[in-house]
């Protein structure tokens, strides 16, 4: 039997509310402004540091007119275009290889699994600069390449700086991208694979229609990271004479000795390209968040 908590029947006055008796009434009190003391201290410290830095650059030996003069120099813009196009092409190759490798790695076929693991092992295990040099010097190993009877060429003619940069960067990127994609595939609930099978989908159809669209939410943030990294790694391709922006900036300062000014030009262009990418990534992420609760 439950206890009866109501006042006994017939009692004239109701009991006073319990809370009001025990605690002061705060319902009418305004909320005082918070004093963000730590925040203001940080602002002051940062302003002082920025001032010092600005002063150092102002009295430092930088001829800012040269930064302005070379910012839109055709050689720099050509290098910028090469950098961006190479980064996009190498990323495309990297994503294609990454998808292939991740799918192989998660396939039930042990030969495919081992091949995928070997690829990732080699290309993640050696420096990308070394790989660029290997591709560029491929002619030392294979003087001629081709498909017997169909097509043949001298390796030195094929392995141009562009080709060496694309293969070196793209194949290296594929090894890293495959791990990002594999993580995304593993993040999708096993019940999704089974539901796809249960409606009669083959493995490839279920990957394309069910698994990848869901994995994209996990894949995109690190993939954006990878792409931003690749844009800057493209500068390593100057070692195989690829005319990317840093390479071209160097060529100019070898001639005129405005080293810092040209490095600043290149740095600003890198920052601009990366800044454009961030909102693009957000757009893509939004596109692939279909059906995810609003709280994600």
């Amino acid at each position: 039997m439950s206890r009866d908590l109501s006042p006994p029947a017939g009692s004239a006055e109701p009991e006073p509310p319990l809370i009001a008796a025990a605690f002061p009434d705060v319902s009418g009190c305004p909320v005082a402004r918070q004093h963000h003391l730590g925040r203001w201290t940080a602002v002051v410290v940062m302003l002082v540091l920025l001032g010092l830095l600005g002063h150092a650059f102002a009295i430092g030996q930088i001829e800012w007119v040269f930064v302005g003069r070379f910012f839109f120099a055709p050689v720099i813009l050509w290098g910028l275009l090469n950098t961006v196009v190479m980064a996009v092409a190498a990323m495309a190759l990297g994503i294609a290889l990454g998808i292939l490798t991740a799918v192989m790695r998660l396939s039930p076929n042990p030969v495919l699994q081992a091949t995928a693991m070997g690829y990732v092992w080699f290309f993640r295990g050696t420096p990308v600069m070394l790989q660029l040099l290997l591709w560029f010097n491929l002619a030392l190993v294979f003087p001629a390449i081709g498909i017997p009877g169909l097509w043949e060429a001298r390796t030195v003619d094929v392995m141009t700086p562009v080709m060496a940069a694309l293969l070196g960067l793209g194949i290296n990127q594929g090894a890293y991208t495959s791990e990002v994609i594999r993580a995304g595939m593993l993040s999708v609930d096993i019940g999704q694979y089974e539901a796809a099978k249960a409606i009669g989908m083959t493995r490839l159809t279920s990957l394309r229609r069910i698994i990848f669209p869901q994995a994209m939410r996990v894949i995109l943030p690190p993939l954006g990271n990878e792409f931003i990294g690749l844009i800057k790694t493209t500068s390593l391709a100057s070692i195989v004479q690829f005319a990317e922006i840093l390479h071209n900036a160097q060529n100019i300062y070898y001639a005129n000795s405005r080293v810092i000014e040209l490095l600043i030009v290149a740095a600003i262009w890198y920052l601009i390209v990366v800044s454009i990418l961030t909102p693009l990534q957000h757009l893509l992420e939004k596109r692939f968040s279909r059906g995810a609760g609003a709280h994600r």
């Binding site: 999704q192 089974e194 409606i199 669209p213 869901q214 059906g291 995810a292």
Partner: peptide, 14 residues
């Protein structure tokens, strides 16, 4: 054969 799972397994992106 049609299969209905304990945990529904609907495709969340559709």
């Amino acid at each position: 054969t049609g299969m209905v799972f304990q945990r529904f397994n609907l495709f969340p992106h559709m």
